[in-house]
């Protein structure tokens, strides 16, 4: 059997959503040379020098972890300190990261869920819909989701909460304290980058009381909640609401100041 080429390995890992990094010499002695890296696997290919390969692989794994791509400069044997790079040819390497897609977990199989799942797919999320009610949490209602789970929130957080990181999002749309209190409690114990919780200002106030009873009292943890969820753009339909939620996720990530519903007061839906 012929061994797969670098391109074929890259293609297969991208298609199966496994993280992979492609390092390419773009300036230096062997322009076009490739090194393919993946977590817990030996690097494939070579940039022309074993020591350079070792150093670039180390850096590329860190870049992959952060989901960053960019050009890095080295000496011919992977030197990185500025003194070592004086009077020597440098090698410029384009390190391209193909991180796994970000995840969005949506709790509550309601009308808003289908719209949010659709918009999240457009943005490249891997979408999980979770609800304890078997009649609502069906594949047929959410064909756009990557996964539909009939489960209470806690088992999911216990099993897979460790997977969530800065690029991921948890959106809690149930408005039912039985379900959204454990979902919030599970989410604040993860490293997830965004936690949004749906509800009117009244629902929100009641929910905060219940969350306090459940032990959510520290300001730093409460501050992670975007509740009520979404930007204050006057969204009314499920589709518009989905846009307001996703726009808030983007704004939180980029650190732009935009009017979130959380930071205002008064009715969320003014009369049309």
């Amino acid at each position: 059997m012929v061994a797969p080429t670098i391109y074929e390995q890259l293609r297969d890992r991208i298609r199966t959503e496994q993280p992979v990094g492609l390092c390419t010499v773009i300036e230096g002695p062997s322009v076009g040379a490739k090194l393919l890296i993946a977590p817990e696997q030996p690097a494939q290919g070579s940039l022309g020098d074993p020591e350079l390969d070792r150093i670039v692989a180390r850096d590329a794994l860190a870049e992959l972890e952060a989901g960053r791509s960019g050009v890095r400069h080295y000496g011919p044997q992977g030197q990185t300190t500025p003194e070592d790079l004086i009077d020597t040819d440098t090698v410029s390497v384009f390190v391209e990261s193909f991180a796994r897609p970000p995840q969005m977990w949506i709790f509550g199989a309601v009308d808003f869920t289908a719209s949010l799942a659709k918009v999240a797919k457009v943005l490249g999320y891997r979408v999980t819909v979770c609800d304890a009610r078997e009649v609502f949490a069906t594949r047929r209602r959410f064909p756009m989701a990557d996964e539909v789970l009939v489960s209470w929130p806690m088992p999911l957080f216990v099993q897979r909460g460790h997977e969530l990181g800065q690029r991921d999002a948890v959106c809690i749309l149930t408005h039912d304290p039985k379900f959204d209190v454990p979902a919030v409690m599970g989410a604040v114990d993860t490293r997830v980058g965004y936690i949004g919780v749906m509800g009117s200002r009244k629902t929100h106030a009641k929910r905060m009381d219940r969350l306090a009873e459940a032990g959510l009292t520290e300001a730093v943890r409460i501050d992670r909640l975007m509740s009520p969820i979404g930007l204050d753009i006057g969204a009314r339909t499920p589709e518009e609401t989905a846009i307001s939620i996703c726009a808030e996720i983007i704004a939180r990530r980029t650190g732009r100041s935009t009017p979130s519903l959380r930071d205002g007061s008064g009715a969320i839906h003014s009369a049309p």
């Binding site: 773009i26 791509s69 960019g70 050009v71 384009f94 391209e96 990261s97």
Partner: peptide, 15 residues
């Protein structure tokens, strides 16, 4: 063809 670097305002990121 891949974007490897952008200076100033650029429409697409590296990659």
């Amino acid at each position: 063809a891949r974007v490897v670097n952008i200076e100033g305002s650029g429409p697409r990121d590296p990659g």
